[in-house]
Design a protein around this nucleic acid. Structure first.
Lengths: 333, 333
DNA sequence: GATATAAATTGAATCGTTTCATCGAGGAGG
DNA sequence: CCTCCTCGATGAAACGATTCAATTTATATC
C-alpha cells in the first residue's frame, strides 16, 4: 500500500541503508541525496514510525499521568506540556489515574509497555516506590506538583509553603487570629506543604495555633462544603478561612452562600488555584494562584533534556512561585 | 533484555506460533496452555505492542484533536474518552489545534503518520475538507460538538437549538422582550445553532426580533466582557442577556460586576456550560449545561465500533440533550 | 482398525525500519 | 606507483511479534 523505504531505494537505485542514512540526517553524496529526495517525493513516502520504534525502542511519545483529567489544574499543565513537546515531534498520551495508586501503577506499566520515551506524573500518593519499580531507570520520569518518598526523581513543584504563608500572613496582619484552614489529605505532599506554610506564620508571629481549626479534606467539592460548615458551627468559629485547593474552594463558597454568611463581614475567605474565582465572585475573592502553564512547560523541558540523555544534576527539583492575588474577601479587624 | 515470545516458546517447548495463538486467545491444548502460562510467569513476559503493531498495522492508540486543551469542555470530553477506551486497551493522544485550521490539519497528518487507529475531533472551522483529505477513509474519525461541511463523518452533537430555545423561551414567558444574545463566530457550527434556537423562539411566539441585540464574539472571555458592555450601553438596553459559552459568560459576569449592575433586578442573565457557575455565584446563575462526559463517552463508543470495522448506518449523528438549570438570575417582569 | 475430518502445532516468511561489518573509490603522502 | 586512510555505500541480519501453508495429532464414524 504505502511506499516503504525499499521502494524508495529501488526507485532511487541506491541501497536501503543509504536511504536510511539520508532519512536520519547522516552524510550522503550529493547525487544520491537528490535521487532519494526525488524518489521520496514521487512515492509520497512516509517513514513508518512503528517499524522505526521496533528497532530503536523509541516511540517519540510521552505519557502524562494525572489523578484527574477534568480539572483546570491538570489540563493547564497538559496544555503546557503538549505545546512544548510538539515542537520536537513528540506526542502526548494522557492517563487518568483516578486518584488510585493501583490504577496509577497499572497506567505506568501500560505506557511503559507501549515504549513511551518519558513520563511526567502527578503522583496520587505519598509513596513513589511503584514509580521507579515500574519505570526502572531507562525511562525518564518527572514529577510535578507533588514530591514522593522513596523515589529519586526530577520534579517541578510550586512553593506552597510560602504561597500559603503569604496568604495567611495577610490575614494575620489584618488582625485575624482564629484562622481556619481546609487542606488536603495528610498523606499528600502539597497538602502537607500548605499546612506547613500555615504553621510557620503562627510560629514566626509567635501566636498560638489552634489545631482544631485545621481540617483535612480530600480535595473534592464535597469536603470543602462539609468542612467549612463544621468550622462555622464551632462554638468559637474562625474569623477567616483559607481553603487550599480549587474544588474545595467551590464547595466552601457554596456552603457560605447557602448559609447566608456575608463575606467579608462575617467571614474572610481565601481560595485557591483559579484566577476566575477572583474575577466573577462578588466580592472578589482573594486567591493563591499557581503558575500552571509554567509547571507544564518546565516539566516538559526537563523531561526533554533527560530523554536526550542528559544526566546533569539529577535529581533536579525546580520550585516555582505561586502568587497571592488580593481581592475584597478579607476584612480588617 | 526483556523476554520475547521466542524465549517463552523455548522455555515452554512449543513453537512461537503456538504461543502467539495462546496470547491472542485462540484454542490451545490444555497441556500447552499450562506450559506457556508457566513460562510467561517465570520470564515475566510482556508482549511487545510495537512489534505487534508492525504486523497488524494497528497501534491501539487514538487521537483527540481539540481547539484548546485548557478548558473544562475539552477536558471533560477527553476524560470521558480516555475512560471509555481504557477498558479496550487504547491510549489517547491529545492534540491542541489552537483554533487554527492549518495547525489542525498538521496535527491530523502527524497522528496519521503515527498510525493512530482513529481520531475524534472537535473541528475548529466550518469546513471539513482537510479532514477527509488527510485521514482518507481507512482511519475512522468522529466529530464532536461541531458539524462541518464537505465531509461525511460520524458526529456526536448537542442539541443546541433546543437548549437555547428552552432558555430564551423561559425569558419570554417571564415577560422579557428585549433579549440580548452573545454568541460565537458566525462560521462556527455551534454558534449558528445557538443563534437559530434564539431566532425560533421569537418566530414561534410571533414576536419581533431585534437583530442588533445579537452580538458575535469569538468565544473568549474578552469578547464576553466587551459585548455585554456594548449591549448595556445601547439607548434601549436589553432586560435580559443570554451568553452562549463558558468563557464569554465569565467575561460578561466580570463586566456586570464592575458596572455594578444588579442581577436580576437590573438585568437577567443566563450563562453556559458550567454548573459551577450556578453554584458559586450569587444570585445563582441560570445556565445551560452540556453533557460533557457523555459526549466523550458516546464519541469513544462510536469510534470504537468503527475501528472494529462496523459500517452500520454511516454517517451517524448522535444528538444529546443539554439541560437548562434554572437559578435566581432571571427576573419576572 | 481403517478412514475421513477436524483441530492443534509447526516453522518460516513477513511487517518496515536500523545497524553493522564489509567493501570500494578517491585522495594524500611517500 | 603503491600504500594507507577516510567516507560513503552496500546488503544482510536484527527488532518481536503475526500469519499461513503444511503437517501432525486427536476425534468420530463405520
Amino acid at each position: 500500500m504505502a511506499a516503504t523505504i525499499k521502494d524508495v531505494a529501488a526507485l532511487a537505485q541506491v541501497s536501503v541503508g543509504t536511504v536510511s542514512r539520508y532519512l536520519n540526517g547522516y552524510e550522503v553524496s550529493e547525487v544520491n541525496k537528490r535521487k532519494i529526495e526525488e524518489a521520496v517525493r514521487r512515492l509520497d513516502f512516509k517513514l513508518n514510525p512503528v517499524a522505526r520504534s521496533l528497532k530503536t525502542s523509541k516511540s517519540m511519545t510521552v505519557a502524562v499521568v494525572v489523578p484527574a483529567l477534568a480539572n483546570v489544574f491538570s489540563m493547564s499543565i497538559i496544555e503546557g506540556i503538549e505545546r512544548h513537546l510538539d515542537q520536537y515531534g513528540y506526542s502526548v498520551i494522557v492517563c487518568d489515574s483516578q486518584s488510585d495508586v493501583q490504577k496509577e501503577k497499572a497506567k505506568l506499566q501500560f505506557v511503559k509497555d507501549k515504549y513511551v520515551d518519558g513520563v511526567v506524573i502527578m503522583p496520587t500518593g505519598s509513596d513513589g516506590t511503584h514509580i521507579t519499580e515500574v519505570l526502572g531507570d531507562e525511562i525518564p520520569a518527572v514529577l510535578m506538583d507533588r514530591l514522593v518518598e522513596n523515589a529519586k526523581l526530577d520534579a517541578v513543584l510550586v512553593d506552597n509553603v510560602n504561597a500559603v504563608y503569604q496568604a495567611v500572613e495577610r490575614l494575620i496582619t489584618l488582625g485575624h487570629r482564629r484562622i481556619g484552614m481546609i487542606t488536603g489529605p495528610k498523606h499528600i505532599y502539597t497538602a502537607r506543604e500548605r499546612q506547613e506554610g500555615y504553621r510557620r506564620v503562627f510560629v514566626d508571629y509567635n501566636l498560638p495555633m489552634d489545631e482544631s481549626l485545621i481540617r483535612y479534606g480530600d480535595y473534592t467539592e464535597d469536603t470543602g462544603y462539609k468542612l467549612i460548615n463544621e468550622l462555622m458551627r464551632l462554638e468559637c468559629p474562625p474569623t477567616a478561612v483559607f481553603v487550599a485547593n480549587y474544588e474545595m474552594t467551590i464547595g466552601a463558597i457554596m456552603a457560605v452562600n447557602e448559609a447566608g454568611i456575608q463575606i467579608p463581614d462575617q467571614l474572610s475567605l481565601i481560595g485557591f488555584d483559579q484566577l476566575e474565582l477572583s474575577k466573577i465572585i462578588r466580592p472578589s475573592l482573594s486567591v493563591v494562584v499557581q503558575p500552571m502553564a509554567e509547571i507544564g512547560q518546565k516539566a516538559a523541558e526537563m523531561l526533554y533534556q533527560r530523554m536526550r540523555g542528559s544526566h546533569d544534576n539529577f535529581p533536579q527539583v525546580i520550585r516555582l512561585k505561586a502568587n497571592f492575588i488580593d481581592g475584597q474577601s478579607i476584612k480588617k479587624l
